[in-house]
Design a binder for these strands. Structure first.
Lengths: 133, 133
DNA sequence: GGCAACTATGTCGCATGCCGACATAACACA
DNA sequence: TGTGTTATGTCGGCATGCGACATAGTTGCC
């Protein structure tokens, strides 16, 4: 691998900083909407799944969690009326997850604000990505 | 705010997925190098600071941590010979952090691999950023 | 100079969320 | 039908950041 210059450290550090800034924004926004960061990401992943649904295992894959951790996450979300759990019809082991009306509304709001925030961060992120050589 | 289309959810979900993929790569790489993810990010932030140094409070700012949490993080890093703590000369309350030789070597290796990984992810990230409208 | 308010860092106990190990139900296939 | 595998769920443990508090050093104002 080619050696690193000072600017490389600056670029990498800057990129991580922007990512943390985004995470921080996202966590605050989720919190104000009554969600944990993971719950928000789970809602988004499920909503973006085929037909707006995902199995527990698929959610785990998308979030890079162990299936049983996703199961715990889902449990907390069901208790807060964010998603509904429906036993699979073909394979009865699988559980299909869908957003509740409440989850749908919260996600819509959060998605709008996140899109706006990402547009704000975009120029800096693009510049840093370009600076990777 | 303008309404969201299906593609907006897909773009947002895709972007978060790529970020998680990067985080996952980074956490694994840090772990293999004997660091926690936070320790890696701290090394990078300190190294990219003016003169390759940062105060505890400055580190906290860069990592979006409370000062006392940064202090704990630094404590663990000192115990692992990743950074050195030097009492400030002007303001004796401040503690200046610098990478140890070991920390410097580990960070150099991690930075090279991270730059390569980010270059791999870059096309997808750029596409998703552009897709935000 | 000396005291009060403030700043920078550090200590301690707690909450959160993930994981490993284990459990259970359903499926596959011989 | 028996055995191995898959999908999900339960439980205890662990790491890390935070709030509350503590301490040393600094600043300003009289």
């Amino acid at each position: 691998m080619p050696k690193l210059q000072e600017t490389d450290y600056a670029t990498l550090a800057g990129f991580r900083y922007e990512l943390r800034k985004f995470s921080r924004y996202s966590e605050r926004a989720a919190g104000e909407a009554g969600l944990t960061p993971r719950q928000h990401q789970a809602l988004l992943a499920i909503r973006a799944g085929p037909g707006g649904a995902l199995h527990v295992g698929q959610l785990a894959e998308r979030l890079f969690l162990r299936p049983h951790s996703a199961s715990e996450l889902v449990q907390r979300m069901v208790e807060q009326d964010l998603v509904t759990r429906e036993p699979g019809t073909e394979d009865k082991r699988q559980v299909t997850l869908t957003l509740s009306d409440h989850g749908e509304k919260v996600l819509e709001y959060l998605s709008q604000s996140h899109r706006a925030e990402l547009r704000r961060l975009r120029p800096m992120l693009q510049e840093l990505l370009a600076g990777l050589g």
